[in-house]
Structures are given as C-alpha cells and as structure tokens.
Design a protein around this nucleic acid. Structure first.
Lengths: 178, 178
DNA sequence: CTGATAATTGAGTGATCGTTCAATAACCAT
DNA sequence: ATGGTTATTGAACGATCACTCAATTATCAG
C-alpha cells in the first residue's frame, strides 16, 4: 500500500513490490492473484483506515461544527507529517485510473461517498441545533467540504506550506460557520 | 497532448503516440528528443492555452467579481463538455509525477501560480472598489479559489453531475462575494 | 524420525517498454 | 534529369514489464 500510495499504481512495478515485501514473485503471487488484486487489497485497507478515522473524529461529543473543524485540523496535521507529499491514495487513484475501470473506481468513490455522507449528517445535526449558517443546505455544504479536501490535497503538491493551507481551511469553514 | 491528457504520462506508450500521430517511431524521435520531451512540449502547449483562457476571462471590462464568476462558469462548461473526464492536464500531472521531478513539476506549478496571481490581482481590484467581502485578504481568497478549482476537478471524477458542481461553485463564491 | 503438505525460491516466460538506425523515399535547387 | 539534402520507414535493440512453475526448503502431525 505504501508503494502504491507513493508512486501510484502504474509506476509501481512487481519488482518494487517484491523488494519492499522481501517476498519472491512466486510467494507474492501465491498470496495475491496478481498485481491488480494486491492493489485492490491496498485500496480496501486504506479505505478502512479512513473510515475509522472519519468515525473517530466526526462522532465525538463536541458540537457538530467543532467536529468538522477538527477533521480539517487533523487533515492539516497529517499533511504536515507527510514530507513525501503522498497525499491521499484515493484521490491519487481517482485521477490516475481511467473512468472506465469500474472495479477500482467504484471502491474509491464508495469510500469517498461515506465521508461525504458523514459530513452531511453532522451538518444536518448543526442545522437542527440552529448552528448552521442560515439558508445553507447540508448536502451542498458537504459537497463543498469534499471539494475542500480534494483541493487541499492538490494544493499541497503545489505549495506545501502549512500557513497557506491554514488560511484556506479558515476561509472554507467560514462558509458553514458564518 | 490529448493522449497524455486522457491517460497520463506513464500509461501513454510510444506505440500509442505513433498510432495517434500516424508517425513512425523514427520520425517521432526525429521531431522530439524522446517521450519525456514530447510530454514537456505538451505541458507547455496546455499551459499556454490555459494562460490565454485565463487572460481572456479575467481581463474583461466587467466588475472583478463577475469576472471570477465567469471563470468558474466556463470551468463548469468545459467540464460538462468533457464526457471522457480528462479533467485538467496540469492537475493530473501534479498528482502523477513524483515531487522529486523538478523539471516537470516546475512547469506545472509555474502555470498554476500564474492563475493564482491573476486571481489575486482581480480580487485586489475588487477590494479597492469596496466590493470584496469585508475582512478578507485577496491572496488568501486567491488560494481558496485555486483550491476550489482543484477540488472541482477531483469531485467531477467522483460525481460528474452538473447540478452538484453548480451548487459547489455557488457556495465557494459566496465566500468572496458575501 | 517420517512423510505428506505447504511455502518459498529464483530462473525463465512472452509481451511490451522506450529507443535506435541503416535503408529507403521524398524533396528541391541546379 | 541530377545530385545532395532531408524525412520517413520499420525492423530490431536491450531493458523492463507482469507473471509462471519446477525444484527446493520449511512445517508439522502422527
């Protein structure tokens, strides 16, 4: 997973994988059907970790909007702790793999949709508590936040500077909070 | 360029390029040093077209914030007219190529920085005319808009639906306009 | 210890990768 | 037409790709 994350699916060779795992080709192919299968496992593992992270942050007992802010703060921390600039495996994969590859894209999109759904739930909660910016629709705002995550992921490759990204997050969250 | 745009640099083979151009390998290598060189030319061509587009939209005689809105409307039109979901060659390249590849990344980042700079100039103009949301910094907002572009590019791969993207743009622009 | 089973080895498969180059064809001023 | 230059051809190169498999080693129940 680390290799696919760092270099992408196509640029990661089976040779790279055998060296990283210290498994000979035969052993690797004994454990996984082929390179693509191993990649699918990697995607699932990554998606599982993401789900656990999202649940942990968005299910706390804090006010809903504070939970969302914490999510983005964690995202910034994670980004700062990633000097290699790997970004997000799901986003990387979404851009690398052609749209026709449904087997891969379906997994990626499903994992991302879960995040959007949780965002939407938390925003609905905020709406019910009267804490949401007036006249805003939770599902639209959830989409905006997803766009924000994606955008930050890309922007970090352009300018990996913490302060700039902090400002972006502040501006972004001003939409839901105002 | 179309091939690199559609499939990315690594997944585009020289064979693909010879078939698409109807040039034999020798001719192709007579015109360009190698595959990478042809890719760099493609990037430059794309960046040039982007620059012309940005200048055309952001230099009109309309009010500054209207120009920015038009930029995003054009972005949505372009996205809707791209059923293959190629997205943006620069964004795709930024995520595909490793950060260590300075020759490629420098060109991509430079082209993107130009867009951000023009955004910043237009936003400064809006500030001077008193049309900017109070207390907002043009350079920060320019970064937010860049993040918005990037985010939309990725979100379109997840949910290529015009209406959803329209809503996202409305929410995004509410930050600068409010 | 023994023997059946499972895991590991690593050389080797054909296919495709990016790239080269001698041979051929096209071009064009004289 | 002719000779010299330029462009094109397409077979072939070594390297690497994802992948296989017969041979070997490890495992472990009886």
């Amino acid at each position: 997973m680390q290799l696919f994350w760092r270099r992408g699916y196509h640029k990661t060779s089976v040779r790279d994988l055998t060296e990283a795992t210290r498994l000979q080709p035969g052993s690797l192919y004994g454990a996984f059907k082929n390179k693509r299968s191993l990649f699918l496992y990697s995607l699932d593992y990554y998606a599982g970790e993401l789900k656990r992270f999202v649940d942990a942050v968005l299910n706390s007992d804090e006010p809903p909007l504070a939970r969302i802010r914490h999510f983005f703060e964690h995202l910034l921390e994670e980004t700062a702790a990633d000097p290699e600039g790997k970004g997000c495996l799901l986003v990387n994969t979404l851009l690398e793999v052609p749209a026709e590859d449904e087997e891969i894209n379906q997994r990626v999109i499903q994992a991302l949709e879960y995040v959007e759904k949780r965002f939407c739930q938390v925003l609905t909660e905020a709406l019910e508590r009267g804490e949401l910016a007036s006249g805003k629709d939770p599902s639209t705002l959830a989409r905006l936040l997803m766009t924000g995550i994606f955008g930050l992921r890309v922007y970090n490759k352009m300018h990996p500077q913490r302060e700039e990204m902090d400002d972006i997050v502040d501006s972004l969250l001003s939409v839901v909070n105002a």
